[in-house]
């Protein structure tokens, strides 16, 4: 069941377009904002609100990298792995994060504090290597900076 709040927000998003279906990504993001991820049940409920079939909506949900069909942690670490960050040595930063958190790419820590994912070019190439945690960008990174950065996220 969609909450009253979710339903209102979805209707507001979908109402901006000539056809409800065009609000599909925004509707998925509404539920994700409230629950952290989008379950099978949520796919059924959202699709009904948009006059789509669950399969049509799931095709959209599974296409986009940042709609999560599995549970994720409270904080999302996105490590840029594109070419400028490669040349500037992002691998050292990534290895260090993996070691500190004991998870691989795609993994979530046991306490659900962090999920670690790759992201294509963050557009911070003059400050490579760069990562994004939730909505915050960190550039010119070295492994030695990670402890203090990660400690800001609970």
């Amino acid at each position: 069941m969609l909450s009253e709040e979710e339903r209102k927000e979805i209707e507001a998003e979908a109402g901006q377009y000539d056809r409800k279906e065009a609000g599909s990504v925004e509707a998925l993001k509404v539920v994700q904002r409230h629950r952290g991820w989008v379950s099978d049940e949520a796919i059924r409920d959202i699709s009904a609100a948009l006059d789509m079939t669950p399969d049509e909506l799931d095709a959209v949900a599974t296409f986009y990298s940042f709609i999560f069909r599995r549970e994720v942690g409270r904080n999302l670490i996105l490590v840029c792995d594109s070419v400028a960050c490669y040349v500037m040595g992002y691998q050292g930063v990534l290895d260090s994060i993996k070691e500190k958190l004991g998870i691989d790419l795609g993994g979530t820590t046991e306490d659900r504090r962090f999920t670690l994912l790759p992201i294509s070019c963050l557009g911070q190439c003059d400050k490579a290597p760069a990562i994004m945690i939730n909505e915050d960008i960190y550039g010119n990174l070295g492994p030695e900076m990670l402890d203090s950065i990660l400690s800001r996220y609970k």
């Binding site: 377009y17 056809r19 065009a22 609000g23 986009y64 294509s120």
Partner: peptide, 27 residues
Amino acid sequence: MRIHTSAGRYICGEETALITALEGKRA
């Protein structure tokens, strides 16, 4: 004028894929 914020995927920058994405479908 409206802002449409996507949810990732490089292909959305391709002109016709961008249009398909705006329609609320796989891009």
